[in-house]
């Protein structure tokens, strides 16, 4: 009984950590521009698939990972430069369509150059499961959870201690005021895309040994990351991480205790229920709209 529960807990936390990183990516871009980047999932795909392809081309794993992350960052910055920036002050709906166009573009390129088949990335420190109270934990899960923790700490440091990080917070809080004190919203936006692309790609690499990877994994991962970000309350970094972990746990518990048929339905049922009762998400600020 306990071992079952632990098993579900481990797998839930592992996928949850991945969702959390995707959700953080959504949050960073949202805070910089109020854009919801539907291409977020493609960064995970580029991370995973890039690593596979670069490694297959003979690069050592670490270098392949670095190259894949760099590729994702370039893709992210390109989306910002050539699409988001050009769109100017477009409305919510056109912006959604633009980022979906971008995601199709990236997915199409991946399919063209890397093919349609599924690939496995070798686990970083072997496949020997660790036994904890009757449940097994893959070493790769530790990599996923560890990298999430490290990235969250790094982000916290970045936003609190560095000039660029503070500039991003300033833009999130009040764009006009930030511009007045000399912060360039364009620079912040570019940085936001680079940062969330990197986050996504790393999440994609870390999860690839567990989930397999292919050109089209970005769709569902992106949508679930969006769900996690909304669950937590758009714009809240804490909410994004909490939302991601909650989502992973709920999925794993449902698959384990109820039925795995409806595992993919869990995020959407959850987010609808939460929004029905808390229209601003779990950790979103409650406020009265000013008139």
């Amino acid at each position: 009984m306990l071992s079952d529960f632990l098993q579900f807990l481990f797998s839930g936390l592992t996928t949850g950590a991945t969702f959390a990183l995707v959700a953080l990516g959504f949050t960073i871009i949202y805070n910089a521009s109020h854009v919801i980047n539907f291409a977020q999932g493609e960064f995970l795909m580029i991370g995973g698939m890039g690593t596979v392809m670069f490694a297959a081309a003979g690069m050592p794993l670490l270098l392949a990972i670095a190259a894949a992350v760099a590729l994702a960052v370039i893709a992210g910055m390109a989306i910002e430069k050539f699409a988001i920036e050009r769109a100017g002050q477009a409305d919510t709906i056109p912006l959604i369509i633009i980022t979906i166009g971008a995601s199709l573009f990236l997915r199409g390129l991946a399919q063209y150059f890397w093919g349609k088949s599924y690939h496995a990335v070798p686990a970083f420190s072997g496949d020997e499961p660790i036994n904890i109270l009757g449940a097994t934990l893959l070493p790769q899960s530790l990599w996923v959870l560890g990298s999430m923790l490290i990235l969250v700490c790094l982000l916290a440091w970045f936003f609190e201690r560095t000039l660029s990080g503070k500039a991003m917070l300033a833009v999130a809080a009040n764009k006009d005021a930030a511009q007045m004190v000399g912060i360039s919203p364009r620079f912040v936006l570019l940085l936001a895309f680079a940062l969330s692309a990197a986050l996504g790609a790393i999440a994609g690499v870390m999860a690839a040994p567990i989930t397999l990877t292919s050109y089209d994994i970005g769709i569902m991962l992106g949508l679930k990351g969006f769900v996690a970000a909304v669950l937590g309350g758009l714009g809240s970094a804490f909410g994004a991480v909490a939302g991601g972990l909650l989502l992973g746990l709920m999925e794993a518990m449902t698959a384990g205790y109820v039925s795995s048929d409806y595992k993919d339905a869990v995020p959407f049922v959850l987010v609808l229920l939460v929004l029905f009762f808390m229209p601003g998400g779990l950790f979103g600020a409650k406020s009265t709209a000013r008139v």
């Binding site: 633009i98 995601s103 199709l104 997915r107 199409g108």
Partner: peptide, 14 residues
């Protein structure tokens, strides 16, 4: 096809 479709989508809206 998917690449061109995505590009056209972005271009038209932009």
């Amino acid at each position: 096809e998917m690449v061109v479709f995505g590009a056209v989508l972005m271009a038209v809206i932009i």
